[in-house]
C-alpha cells in the first residue's frame, strides 16, 4: 500500500512539474494545482506512520493519526478556491489576448 501511494505521489509530482514547464498558461496553471494534489497525498501518508486502522474506532489494529487528514481537508478547500480563482483570471487573460501562449502574453514587459 505504501509503495502504491509513493509511486502515486511521485507520478503526480512528475506530471505537475512537466505541465508547469509548458508554454501554455492553462497547462502551467493545471500543473500548479496538480502539485498541490501531490502534496496533499504526501500529507495524507504522513499519518500512516503508526498504523492504518481507522481513527476513533474500536478496531484492535494500530490506528491512523487523524491530524494530517484534518490538515489535508483544509488544504483541499483552500486549493479548490485557488483553482476556481486562477481559472477565472486565466479566462480574462486568454480572452484579452486571444491566445494561451506565454510568449505572446507580454504586455507587462515595460
Amino acid at each position: 500500500m505504501i509503495l502504491i501511494i509513493a509511486i502515486g505521489i511521485g507520478t503526480l509530482f512528475g506530471i505537475a512539474l512537466y505541465q508547469m514547464l509548458q508554454r501554455n498558461v492553462i497547462r502551467s496553471a493545471i500543473g500548479v494545482i496538480l502539485l498541490g494534489s501531490a502534496i496533499n497525498l504526501f500529507l495524507l501518508t504522513a499519518g500512516n506512520s503508526n498504523g492504518t486502522g481507522p481513527a476513533y474506532s474500536t478496531v484492535t489494529e494500530t490506528q491512523v493519526d487523524p491530524l494530517p487528514q484534518a490538515l489535508v481537508l483544509t488544504a483541499i478547500v483552500i486549493s479548490m478556491g485557488g483553482l476556481a480563482f486562477i481559472l477565472a483570471m486565466l479566462y480574462i487573460i486568454s480572452a484579452r489576448y486571444q491566445t494561451g501562449n506565454l510568449d505572446e502574453i507580454d504586455n507587462l514587459k515595460h
Partner: peptide
C-alpha cells in the same frame, strides 16, 4: 494589466504555499 499581474503573483504564491505545506508535512513526519 491588473489581472495579469495578479495571475503572476497568484501563481508564484501558490508555489510558495505548496512549499510551506510540504514543509509542514515533512516536519510533522
Amino acid at each position: 494589466f491588473g489581472t495579469e499581474a495578479a495571475f503572476k503573483y497568484f501563481y508564484m504564491s501558490l508555489l510558495a504555499a505548496a512549499f510551506l505545506l510540504l514543509a509542514c508535512g515533512v516536519l510533522y513526519i
